[in-house]
Simulated assay, not measured.
Amino acid sequence: MMRQLKNKLILISLLIFVISLFFDAFKIEDIGKITNFESYTVALIGFISFLGGGLFEFFVWTANCWFFLSILFTFRKKYSTSSIFGIIALCISASFMLWHEVLASGSGRTAKIQSLEVGYFLWLASILFITCSSVYSKITEKKNA
């Protein structure tokens, strides 16, 4: 019973993550023009953002790594470790809400964030879901022991 629930929780979290890739993550105003950043683009090229000087952008992107580690440890029934990784991912990803500007070009030009979009919030929801699932699984595991 617990194994089926664990697998469903992982699948739901991954499904939310995949769905987030089909939406815009955020909008910026760069040189008087509004530009949408698609979630799939941010996810695919985020890991190389530090090459263009985007160290902080790269840091936010690492929330994906922590998220997938959380999923891996949930799958392995290491719920405490999964919860810790999930909380790290959640803190890093949520910190983006405090940003006012992002790197707009490799030359170091920044642009004002106009709005956070559905893709960002779904990404955040997928991380929150696996984190809460890990905590819930740990609690129910203790009760059943």
Results as ranks from 00 to 15, higher is better:
Phe56Thr: 08
Tyr40Asn: 13
Ser80Phe: 11
Gly32Asn: 07
Leu69Met: 10
Ser83Cys: 08
Cys65Gln: 09
Val118Ile: 15
Met97Thr: 09
Leu98Met: 06
Lys77Trp: 07
Cys132Thr: 13
Ile19Thr: 02
Thr131Val: 04
Leu72Gly: 08
Leu103Trp: 05
Glu29Leu: 15
Ile45Glu: 08
Ser115Ile: 07
Ile127Tyr: 01
Ile12Met: 14
Ser107Gln: 14
Ile127Pro: 00
Thr81Pro: 06
Ser80Thr: 12
Leu9Thr: 06
Ser49Asn: 09
Phe96Ala: 14
Val42Phe: 04
Tyr136Trp: 13
Ser93Ile: 09
Val118Asp: 10
Asn64Glu: 04
Phe96Cys: 12
Ile92Trp: 10
Trp66Tyr: 14
Ser83Thr: 07
Val42Trp: 03
Ile12Gln: 10
Trp123Cys: 01
Ala25Ser: 10
Glu101Tyr: 07
Phe23Glu: 06
Ser20Trp: 02
Ala89Pro: 00
Thr74Trp: 07
Cys91Arg: 13
Lys77Phe: 08
Trp61Asn: 00
Ser49Met: 09
Thr110Phe: 05
Gln4Thr: 12
Leu90Gly: 00
Phe37Gly: 00
Ser49Gly: 09
Asn64Tyr: 05
Asp24Arg: 07
Lys6Thr: 11
Ala94Thr: 11
Leu11Phe: 15
Ala125Ile: 04
Gln114Glu: 13
Ser49Tyr: 08
Cys91Ile: 15
Thr140Trp: 05
Phe58Arg: 07
Leu9Gly: 03
Cys65Ala: 14
Leu128Ala: 03
Ile45Cys: 06
Val18Glu: 11
Leu116Trp: 10
Tyr79Val: 02
Phe75Gly: 03
Tyr120Pro: 02
Val135His: 01
Leu98Phe: 08
Phe37Pro: 00
Ser115Gly: 11
Ser82Ala: 12
Leu128Ser: 01
Trp123Arg: 05
Phe68Ile: 06
Ser20Ala: 07
Leu72Tyr: 15
Leu72Ser: 10
Val135Cys: 02
Val42Pro: 02
Val135Ala: 06
Ala25Tyr: 03
Leu9Val: 10
Ser126Thr: 12
Gly106Leu: 11
Leu44Phe: 08
Ile87Leu: 10
Cys65Phe: 15
Met1Asn: 10
